[in-house]
């Protein structure tokens, strides 16, 4: 407007705790599917670790005596832990974000109230954090029961993997909020998320990759989350590298959040 010298972003919340109300809404929706979701949170790691870790691990271990001096299952568990966090996080901010904009149009309903885009993003990511942390915890419990945990520091892999999952969730939110249809989401999973969970040091050391691909792997937040989790699992953790990994993943998380709010505002406030 003409004399708009006072600046107050449309996203400024008025109701304190608007984000909590959004988070409560998502949790209420989740209540309808929590049981199946919880079962798969436990079954997925079990299948992965049994199949990849022990099945494939048998071959690896008998061929070369493990990876970096530890049995393959011990190598792979923290990698899959971090990748699981990414998958849960992106799974919760892809189709549901598109739906909020285009299908059930829930974001339209939310933004007609005192809430702003910031509350919508923060509230949904709050819910995603609950989902990611519970899934990672379930994974950790299974991994520990299968004897893949070599150090008490490993407990810290839960929040570290969680942070990684949130970085991806926020980035996926920003990406999904730009899209006109869900083809882009399918492509993102097929050509970014899935390859990353295979090649970012999860199932084999990045050094196995062709030379030119290694820097790509290092640049992914997932590789940093995987490395940090692996050091914690094996007890080979050192403060400097750990903080470095955390700072890198944390920076992506912050960037993702800022982008998500900005993209959603552009999309909805027209």
């Amino acid at each position: 407007m003409a004399l708009g010298t006072r600046i107050a972003p449309a996203s400024r919340p008025m109701v304190r705790g608007g984000g909590w109300a959004v988070m409560a809404h998502w949790l209420r929706k989740y209540r309808r599917v929590w049981f199946g979701s919880a079962v798969s949170s436990f079954l997925t790691p079990l299948l992965y670790l049994a199949g990849m870790g022990f099945g494939l691990g048998m071959l690896v271990d008998s061929g070369s005596g493990g990876v970096g001096g530890v049995p393959y299952v011990v190598f792979v568990a923290p990698g899959v832990l971090a990748a699981t966090a990414m998958q849960v996080g992106t799974g919760e901010t892809s189709f549901s974000v598109m739906g909020g904009i285009k299908w059930d149009r829930m974001y339209h309903a939310m933004l007609a109230t005192p809430l702003g885009p910031r509350d919508v993003v923060a509230g949904q990511l709050g819910f995603v954090a609950v989902r990611v942390l519970t899934s990672v915890t379930a994974f950790f419990v299974i991994a520990a029961m299968l004897g893949t945990v070599r150090s008490p520091w490993a407990v810290l892999a839960i929040p570290v993997a969680g942070l990684g999952g949130m970085a991806f969730a926020a980035l996926m939110f920003a990406f999904a909020a730009r899209l006109e249809n869900d083809r882009g989401l399918t492509l993102a999973f097929r050509f970014v998320i899935t390859p990353m969970s295979l090649f970012a040091g999860t199932f084999f050391p990045v050094e196995q990759l062709p030379g030119w691909l290694q820097p790509v792997a290092w640049a992914t937040p997932l590789w940093h989350a995987v490395e940090a989790c692996r050091d914690l699992f094996l007890g080979t953790v050192a403060l400097g590298p750990l903080l470095g990994h955390l700072a890198y993943v944390g920076a992506w998380a912050v960037l993702g959040y800022v982008l998500a709010v900005r993209v959603l505002t552009r999309r909805m406030v027209v």
Partner: peptide
């Protein structure tokens, strides 16, 4: 432009398409 949330707090909205 400046009081959006405060105004929306006192409006009821029935949009054209159900949400």
């Amino acid at each position: 432009a400046t009081d959006g949330p405060r105004i929306r707090a006192r409006l009821g909205v029935v949009p054209q398409r159900d949400s």
